[in-house]
Amino acid sequence: MTARRALLAGIFASLALPRSPAVARAAEVRLAVAANFTEPARVIAARFEVATGHRAVLSHGASGQFVAQIANGAPFDVFLSADASRPIQTEAAGLSAPGTRFTYATGRLVLWSRTPNLVDPRGRVLSTGRFEKLAIADPKTAPYGSAAIETLRRLGLEARLAPRLVRGASITQAYQFTETGAAELGFVALSQVINHRRGSRWTVPASLHSPIAQQALLLKRGADNPAARAFITFLKGPEAQAVIRRYGYEAS
């Protein structure tokens, strides 16, 4: 079975790649990347290609849907999830190469508004401010959403602000709601607003919620793929970790 697959992979590789001895060892890694990690993943993939000569093909989407797709045979080698629970589940379902799960980035939660001076540096606006809507990511499916709820609970504001919450399907949507002003305030990811000079924000202390660990996995399909192994190594390396930090995550 493996021999046949290797043979097929060889045939496809020889079809797809130009005939030069330098790329004879180059392979392709297919990545399922959580939508919130799109930008850094692109940069990391580009540097990975330069550094190793392998090719990285990125698919972006919702983590939960990737799990559904992977469970049904989707052709991914590596899974970069937006949380830890889905990789844990994927691992438990026997869909990954054993012992390859690790945290590649830790997200930071930010209370953000596009209105200057609305959010004060300590987030008091939550208890005193005049606002109609506070956007969060769905706490049931997005780790940034559950972190937002935990923060509100810790501040003793959960019940009081519940009627003002609007839930985006993802952290991207929570950001969209806030960016368009439809919601005046939003709990978003630091990575989404790190380059914004306008607006106002409060970076929520990490002590107010459990860590937003984004975990990666080498999937079964990628276990024998040298490019997939190389990507995992590269992702753990200093170059990739520097990119991750630059985008507002804490590196591991």
Partner: peptide
Amino acid sequence: GGIPGETEVLSIEIYRLVEAL
């Protein structure tokens, strides 16, 4: 904005359930 009883409809709920596994 997924507000129960106000804007949370069937198709959204299915999407959420799939997302939540």
